[in-house]
């Protein structure tokens, strides 16, 4: 077995195992740690796809910032025991699982059915991608500059809104 095939299967296994643990563990701290594991695995998948800069950003933003946010909120809540961690009702739960499995089967079937196009299994040569970070920055600041600035405005609005929301007394029920 070649090295990249082994790497892909290993990363796919760790990613899916982390996702399963996020969904199935009832302690939210364990779920958060599994989510961090999944994020690191996804960053490694990005490295195998030669998107090195995006992999670094994934590690910094997701495995760093977002996970710290989740874990800090969980520790603020002090959630040790969860009374109802899963939805009640075995029939509706089975229907939900069936729907998700059906969607997965449908998507995988569509992928395998439409796989004979010009996007074959052969990867393009690596020489075209060797300078991808420079190209990425150039395209981001020339062609997509409006979306970039709009994202800056959105982040400012989100920051102000979150501070205002968390400073309001009593949360959503101010006076009662």
């Amino acid at each position: 077995m070649t090295a990249d095939a082994f790497l892909f299967w290993f990363l796919a296994l760790s990613t899916v195992a982390g996702g399963v643990m996020v969904v199935s563990l009832t302690n939210p701290i364990y779920a958060a740690l599994s989510l961090a594991f999944t994020m690191v695995s996804v960053a490694a998948v990005f490295v195998t796809l030669e998107a090195f800069f995006v992999a670094g950003v994934q590690l910094i933003v997701y495995a760093g910032a977002v996970m710290v946010l989740f874990v800090m909120v969980l520790m603020l809540f002090d959630l040790k025991h969860e009374v109802e961690s899963f939805a009640r009702g075995k029939v509706t739960g089975a229907i939900k699982l069936l729907a998700a499995g059906l969607l997965a089967g449908l998507l995988i079937g569509a992928i395998l059915y439409s796989s004979s196009g010009e996007l074959g299994s052969s990867a393009p040569q690596a020489a075209a991608q060797i300078d991808s970070t420079k190209t990425l920055g150039y395209r981001l600041f020339t062609q997509h500059i409006f979306a970039f600035e709009a994202l800056g405005v959105l982040l400012l609005v989100i920051a102000v809104g979150v501070v205002a929301l968390s400073r309001s007394k009593g949360g959503t029920h101010g006076k009662h």
């Binding site: 996702g19 961690s85 739960g93 998700a100 499995g101 969607l103 998507l107 995988i108």
Partner: peptide
């Protein structure tokens, strides 16, 4: 696809 459907199961089943 597998990861997306796992996330969908989590959104549907967890409370």
């Amino acid at each position: 696809t597998v990861l997306f459907c796992l996330g969908m199961i989590g959104v549907l089943l967890r409370k």
